[in-house]
């Protein structure tokens, strides 16, 4: 019943602070609400989030399920990683499938083939169907300027919408996730983490990630200033030459619009060095969907997106 190792950390450092702050917000919201869920895609931020949830309830299990909104455009290795991870932690996986919506006509494929914006409807339906009242996400404020405006605990109305002009005050670290029936809250425990913090934490905790976060050889082609992988969902158009490059991913999303970066960073330590010296933000480097317009993220979030 007792633990075996004893250690007295030299001091409470920045990663300790961020970890403790995140665990505090997770425990607090779970203490107040009835039906939480974690959005889990297998991407690095959601992996860190799930790791923190596991720590928050240790030595018990995470007492609620995880939800993956599956675009149908996933990398195989990410899906395999997702299944392995939920199995290891003993949590239940729910999947909301964009493909199902397209197959039965509830959603229509976009002309540009990108499915990220199509995730909102299946997400909101899953929240309603399971009556989830607290939806944890791995979004960070440093990712994007609309996200920089988010509360840690952020109210969504009965339509799943975010009203950035009328957010609830969030005082000290006293979180208030109460809401009316039909509304829910999104909770972002990683709000104050930067990309570099996430990687340093992954290194410190020895967290496993899908392999495509590390440098590997891949067939890619250039589009919109990004390297896209050749997959069934992202095929080169005429004139786009396929080349073999050593790449890695900084974010993992819909394969059709998430770009890889040229990289030799094959270990977490090497990724940290690379991220620390990068000259581009992770979304600027890798996300076509955020380039649609200046306010693309804000508009999607207002509709109920992650």
């Amino acid at each position: 019943m007792t633990t075996t190792t004893t250690h007295a950390p030299a001091r409470f450092d920045q990663l300790d602070y961020l970890e403790s702050e995140a665990i505090h917000s997770i425990r607090e919201v779970v203490g107040e609400l009835e039906r939480p869920v974690i959005l889990f895609s297998g991407g690095k931020d959601s992996v860190v989030l799930l790791h923190l949830a596991a720590k928050a309830f240790w030595p018990g299990r995470v007492p609620f399920p995880v939800l993956h909104v599956d675009t149908g455009h996933n990398f195989e290795e990410v899906l395999a990683f997702r299944d392995r991870t939920v199995e290891r932690l003993g949590v239940r996986l729910e999947v909301a499938s964009v493909q199902d919506y397209i197959d039965d006509g509830r959603l229509v494929e976009r002309p540009d083939g990108t499915r990220n914006p199509l995730q909102t409807q299946p997400l909101l339906d899953a929240i309603a169907e399971h009556r989830f009242d607290a939806v944890f996400g791995g979004a960070r404020r440093d990712e994007e300027k609309a996200r920089a405006k988010e509360r840690v605990v952020s109210l969504r109305d009965a339509f799943g919408a975010w009203d950035p002009r009328n957010q609830r005050p969030e005082l000290w670290s006293i979180y208030n996730p109460r809401h009316r029936p039909g509304e829910h809250v999104r909770v972002f425990p990683l709000s104050n983490w930067t990309e570099l913090d996430v990687w340093r934490y992954i290194e410190r905790e020895g967290i496993e990630l899908p392999p495509l976060y590390y440098a590997h050889e891949r067939d890619v082609f250039a589009r919109d200033g990004m390297w896209l992988a050749v997959t069934p969902y992202s095929l080169p158009r005429p004139g786009e030459e396929v080349v073999r490059r050593r790449v890695r991913y900084r974010t993992v999303g819909d394969a059709s619009c998430t770009g890889a970066v040229l990289s030799d960073a094959a270990t977490t330590a090497e990724v940290i060095v690379e991220v620390a010296s990068t000259t581009l933000t992770e979304r600027g480097a890798t996300r076509a969907d955020d380039r649609l317009s200046e306010a693309a993220m804000e508009d999607r979030k207002k509709e109920g997106y992650f």
Binding site: R141, D142, E144, K145, A146, A148, K149, P164, R165, Q167, S191, N192, T194, E294, A295, E298
Partner: peptide, 18 residues
Amino acid sequence: GLRAEREQGITIDVAYRY
């Protein structure tokens, strides 16, 4: 970073930067 902020040239809600 909000549309309304850019339009009006004022800050409406807190932005966090690191």
